[in-house]
Design a protein around this nucleic acid. Structure first.
Lengths: 225, 225
DNA sequence: CCATATTTTGACTTTCAGTCATTTTTTGAA
DNA sequence: TTCAAAAAATGACTGAAAGTCAAAATATGG
């Protein structure tokens, strides 16, 4: 057998491995969608993915790692969406707005991914998550999206749509955290009957987000006074 | 035995019951502080509280209910703090700021309570939480704090410190969610090594929050242009 | 076709939430 | 003080679900 044949097999195996991993993740995603993350259980994932439990554990360190695998997928999707905004013909401020709206829509359309991403926040470092490759990859992706946000702000400062008296990174951090807060609230209002602050106000997601952008937008805008 | 004696005993029993309940909660809080919520386990809570596991379950429906008990304590503390702000000699805008800072400090000083409160967000209604009295009491308290926020905004609109073109409730909702986002980010930066967006920026909590208030404050202020 | 390496399997172990029959303590009347 | 009934406390037990591992099945390469 030649070396190239060897390589071919190795590559095919790697492909097959990735495919199987991906099937397992999809099984878990479906179960989260159907029953909620809190009822996810490894036996069911195995059954749904049509593999044995043992196989599952050959592809993921543990349950947390599996969920982190979903986070990772989600973070890639988010990254792709976010990066694309930079290429659009928009002012920096509009880009910032678009990034936020995308995030909001993402959470609305893929609650299972959003849920998995939030799960990540609930684990201290000292945990099982520690040995997860996914964790660090998620971190990198988050970092990358954050840099895009910083970039959008810098563009805005150049084109005059954003007040350049701010430190771009600090501003990005604030936009990041406030928009996460808003999206989270929107998600909770949709998905958790308890936790509603305003039952009566028929809150539609985009309206809320527009309110948010209006509020925060004035603080960001270059002053015209 | 007279009826008043009967009442006395009933009252004493109730007091004792509350005391024991409170001891159990404190045991759980200590364990959360020491090992993190994710490692909380009922056998250890029982041991720490010097009662049997069975007793624990006589006071709390289940583990979730126990954590909700901590949430409830936390929500009372928050409520008290928040309500007090309204009595201070401040403009509405300053009150809003103070409420936010209080929340930030609360999360920093009582991570175990903050952690428990966030836990609450991670459970869908369909869960064990459903039969918990604590859940609805937490909801009421949250609602109450929210009303205080609305009130502060209304005061601000009266005294001219807050732009009265907003709907007070909508504005309160936005302040609520954005400040939660900021506090959460601050908490994560402090307590989770992963999840840092800005390692290099030596972020101090108050600075961040001041940045937030500056940003959002401009959108809230009555226009002077 | 066989020997070796890789992958899959599911029965087993462990951990922990939650239960419940039994024991202990408290109550209130005789 | 005594005793029966009620209330509370106990911890051994059950069940569910995470995680393991020796054995079986499959793939590889000579």
């Amino acid at each position: 057998m030649t070396e190239s044949q060897n390589m071919g097999i190795a590559e095919r195996k790697e492909r097959e491995r990735e495919l199987k991993r991906s099937m397992m993740l999809e099984a878990a995603e479906a179960l989260i969608r159907e029953k909620g993350l809190e009822h996810l259980n490894m036996d069911e994932v195995a059954e749904r993915a049509e593999v044995s439990k043992g196989s599952l554990y050959q592809y993921f360190n543990n349950k947390t790692d599996l969920v982190l695998g979903i986070c990772h997928k989600a973070s890639i999707m988010m990254n792709t969406m976010t990066a694309k905004v930079l290429t659009e013909d928009k002012t920096g401020l509009e880009m910032v707005y678009q990034i936020g709206i995308n995030y909001l829509k993402f959470a609305g359309e893929h609650p299972e991914f959003y849920r998995a991403m939030r799960f990540l926040e609930n684990y201290k470092d000292t945990d099982q998550a520690k040995n997860s490759e996914y964790l660090s990859m998620c971190g990198q992706n988050r970092q990358e999206s954050f840099r895009v946000m910083v970039r959008a702000i810098q563009i805005g400062m150049q084109d005059g749509s954003i007040n350049s008296s701010y430190n771009p990174e600090e501003l990005a951090l604030l936009l990041w955290s406030t928009s996460h807060g808003v999206v989270n609230m929107a998600y909770m209002h949709q998905n958790a009957e308890h936790f509603k602050l305003l039952d009566h106000l028929g809150i539609d997601l985009e309206t809320i987000f527009n309110g948010y952008m209006k509020l925060i937008g004035q603080g960001m805008e270059a002053k015209q006074c």
